[in-house]
């Protein structure tokens, strides 16, 4: 659906370099969920993730003058966010007594994770969900992307939807999502 994304990013970066606040707002709106979700996906709290996210975009501002129209801003943001996520995790590991056991399960510490995989997965899911209708977005996020993992009864109450219709609606939304996302 969305063609010319790199071209749009190039225009946004060039406009930001000219000081256009609306271009900056659009750039942040476009990538804030990706950037915030990277530290969250590594298990950082919302508070720590907000620090990483704030820092990442602040570094982007400081780096605007060195970025060119050819820069891949999405990959750039993901790289900076991931690097500062790891730093924060490493700091937490050094400072936190008794937290080593939890971090021992973290794949990146053992070099088992391909570095690009997680942010690309976030981007893939976010890109697909953003093109869904609002009810489908809410349902799929509640079912699969809410760390609280609410029960069907809780989802029913939250979304004002009969419990019996969650399963069939979920199947329809997944079919639509597949059409939007294509194969992975």
């Amino acid at each position: 659906m969305m063609g010319g994304v790199r071209g749009i990013d190039r225009d946004l970066i060039l406009a930001c370099k000219k000081g256009q606040a609306r271009a900056w707002d659009r750039l942040v709106a476009k990538y804030e969920r990706l950037v915030f979700s990277i530290p969250r996906s590594y298990g950082l709290s919302r508070e720590d993730a907000a620090d990483v996210s704030q820092l990442t975009f602040t570094i982007l501002i400081q780096s605007l003058d060195s970025l060119t129209g050819e820069s891949n801003v999405k990959a750039w943001l993901a790289t900076v966010a991931r690097r500062h996520t790891w730093r924060m995790m490493e700091r937490g590991r050094r400072e936190g007594i008794g937290k080593e056991e939890d971090l021992a399960d973290t794949p990146w510490l053992h070099g088992n994770e391909k570095p690009s995989e997680r942010w690309e997965t976030i981007d893939w899911l976010d890109g697909g969900l953003s093109k869904m209708s609002e009810p489908c977005q809410k349902l799929l996020k509640a079912l699969y992307l809410d760390e609280v993992e609410p029960s069907y009864a809780e989802i029913s109450e939250r979304l004002n939807m009969p419990v019996g219709s969650i399963g069939p609606t979920r199947a329809r939304c997944l079919q639509r999502l597949r059409m939007v996302l294509g194969e992975r």
Binding site: D25, V35, R40, E117, R118, I122, L125, E147
Partner: peptide
Amino acid sequence: ATRDVVLDDPPAGQRAELA
């Protein structure tokens, strides 16, 4: 994929701070 990642919105005030 959904088990591997968390998709979450940043705090409401962050965009204003960045602006």
